[in-house]
Design a protein around this nucleic acid. Structure first.
Lengths: 192, 192
DNA sequence: CTTTTATTTAGATATATATCTAAATAGAAG
DNA sequence: CTTCTATTTAGATATATATCTAAATAAAAG
């Protein structure tokens, strides 16, 4: 769903999310009406009705014709049908927000909070957050390369004093693997 | 459609007619989320998100469960389906407003504007309005009774000096009938 | 052509509400 | 039991918007 469609849907809800306009919709569903008639029926001034009708017209919800001095408004029922059809299917809603744009925001914040430049300020108590730090930490090592445990520790110590903790965490959370000769290497991330 | 249903529909539109809440809806359509996650994704403070989620929860649009300190919100997709199904059919919308309640408002206003107590202040130039006054005028005469033209004129003169004008109008607009002996009587109104 | 009527436009005001900060609450971790 | 973390509640503020009055417009009626 495009940004444009999002805006349209939002405006649709905004327009109908008003008592007076929703009543107007109900009245026009019964019969076409002039501005003055609607003003009397809703007990509001003509400019107010005019203002509401303009918003509904802009959206395409109603149409107008002139009859002498009167302007007769009626419902564009096609529009409503098109709007309701499958606007609300899960798959349609799922694309309402562009997840590409926002998906790294959470991780970025975790990094900002727990990192100070290249130093890990603190070990997150939540696994989910820790995994964000672990991903960053793993990225400090080259892919397709073997590291001795001693070298691994040295590198980690640049970022945080408790190298043993992070070394084990990297393995437990499967960012890295080790063989029985104390050699370590990065594992590809499955992304889920 | 009951008043209660109107309120529900109105709240539905109000809740979704907000940029932040519509985005939340889109995000939850993809996956369940905690308050904090949503706050980061939308770049808003937790209390703001909490406030929006409360509104969505109240409506029945989302559900929550606690996971430790986190509150995980997810979409009640059944609710959406039920909402969209035939909520927008013309016949459903047509009952949004109670027309019984409002149908006499227009006539009442015309009477207020053109009448001063029992005096007709002015002859409306529009036929539609004139018919409202004529209905009132006809109601000043008894049903199933014959009036001489002279008596008719006398009665009308209590309300407006131009009795001849109103006498003719009553006949033309078929609120009353006359025979060829200058006798007048009321006609039943067909209501359409 | 002047007046009346219906509507729209412009501008002012009041109400609603989206958002924030600060404080309260409640569960988790140590 | 104390501290930390996520969330909610309370209250303040700023923005959005619903409504009104007054003035402008345009068609109809006289």
């Amino acid at each position: 769903m495009s940004q444009d469609q999002f805006e349209t849907l939002l405006r649709f809800f905004k327009v109908l999310g008003n008592e007076s306009r929703l009543k107007i919709l109900g009245l026009l569903a019964n019969d076409e009406r002039s501005v003055g008639e609607l003003a009397v029926l809703l007990d509001l001034r003509e400019p107010t009705i005019s203002h509401h009708l303009a918003a509904m017209k802009e959206l395409g919800l109603v149409d107008v014709r002139a009859e002498g001095n009167n302007r007769i408004y009626w419902l564009n029922s096609q529009f409503l049908e098109g709007m309701s059809k499958d606007m609300f299917s899960q798959s349609n809603l799922a694309t309402l927000v562009d997840d590409e744009e926002t998906s790294t925001a959470w991780e970025d914040k975790v990094l900002r909070v727990y990192m100070d430049g290249n130093r890990i300020k603190q070990i997150p108590s939540k696994r989910k957050k820790e995994r964000v730090i672990l991903q960053w930490l793993a990225d400090q090592f080259e892919m397709d390369r073997q590291y001795y445990e001693l070298d691994l520790n040295e590198i980690i110590k640049q970022f945080h004093p408790d190298a043993a903790y992070w070394r084990r965490a990297l393995v437990v959370e499967q960012f890295m693997a080790r063989d029985n000769h104390n050699m370590y290497w990065r594992l590809p991330q499955s992304d889920v």
